[in-house]
Simulated assay, not measured.
Amino acid sequence: MDTMDRRDEFLLKMYEQMFNDIDRHHKIVWQVIGVLIGSFAVVALAEKELIPIDIAVAVVILISLWVIAHVYDSNYWYNRNLVIISNIERQFLKKEDLKEIQYYFGEHRDKNAVQTSLKIQLYVGWGLVVLFLSYHFITEIYPGFFISWADASFDWMKMMPYIVLIVFYLKLVKWIKKKRENDYEEFVANSPGIEIDTSSINYGGGHPISKK
């Protein structure tokens, strides 16, 4: 086996492993969704007055933000692996294969764009945050909304879900989102792959790219 055959074999094995990694990160996020659904048991405990409803909602918000952070992290690995896959495909495919086989390998996705199945999970995570905060505000905050914040009778524990949202959004979700966007841009800049003339291809929402 000559050097070229060994290189081709290595690239094909690497190509296969990148797809396996993509599948693994998809499964990780769905497993996290299962954990989130299980967290509803905490709310059931609150309904039985075993723990305060404020703590129960705060826990659901915390886990929801954890899911959202996982989505952004998994999306980076998904897009990074797609870059590697495309770069490997460019070793074997030619310009005419953009039309004869598939056009995705010609350009890399733009700015770590969130792919559709992960975006659905992202919306579910944020939807749960809005749902539980709305429920908590209507049942726990609004009835005493016109009480002065300086009133000693106000239960500041009721602010726990909102404190959790602000702190963990800023310290976890926003941080991981920005970090992974920068990581992706750095990766593409350092490993752009063989340049392919894609002037004849119209990329749309299925494979978002920067405008040339």
Rank of each mutant, 00 (worst) to 15 (best):
H136I: 01
D151Y: 00
S134C: 11
G193F: 08
V130W: 13
K177Q: 14
F145C: 05
M159Q: 11
K158R: 13
Y135I: 02
S148Q: 05
F132R: 03
E140C: 10
A189K: 10
K178L: 02
D151E: 03
K178G: 05
W149F: 07
K177G: 09
W175C: 01
M157L: 14
S134I: 12
I166S: 15
V164Q: 04
N182A: 09
L128Q: 01
H136W: 00
V130K: 11
K171S: 14
Q121K: 14
W156T: 00
V129P: 05
G193H: 09
F168P: 09
K119A: 13
V173Q: 03
E185S: 07
F154D: 04
A152K: 00
K158V: 09
K179C: 09
G193M: 10
I141Q: 02
S153C: 01
I141C: 02
T139H: 11
H136G: 00
W126R: 07
L170W: 09
W175E: 07
Y135N: 01
W126K: 08
E181I: 09
E195Y: 11
V167K: 15
T139A: 12
L118D: 09
K119I: 10
M157F: 13
K158I: 08
I120V: 07
V129S: 07
V173D: 02
V167N: 15
I147K: 04
L122S: 04
F132I: 04
L128V: 06
N182S: 07
G127P: 05
F145I: 07
V173R: 03
W156D: 00
N190M: 14
I176A: 04
P192S: 05
Y184A: 11
E140W: 07
V188P: 05
I196L: 07
K179P: 11
V124N: 06
Y184Q: 10
K171L: 15
V164Y: 04
F132S: 02
G125M: 11
E181L: 09
P143Q: 06
V124I: 15
A150I: 03
I120C: 02
I147T: 10
I194L: 09
R180G: 03
V124L: 14
L131V: 13
K174F: 05
G144D: 11
S191I: 08
D155H: 04
V124Q: 08
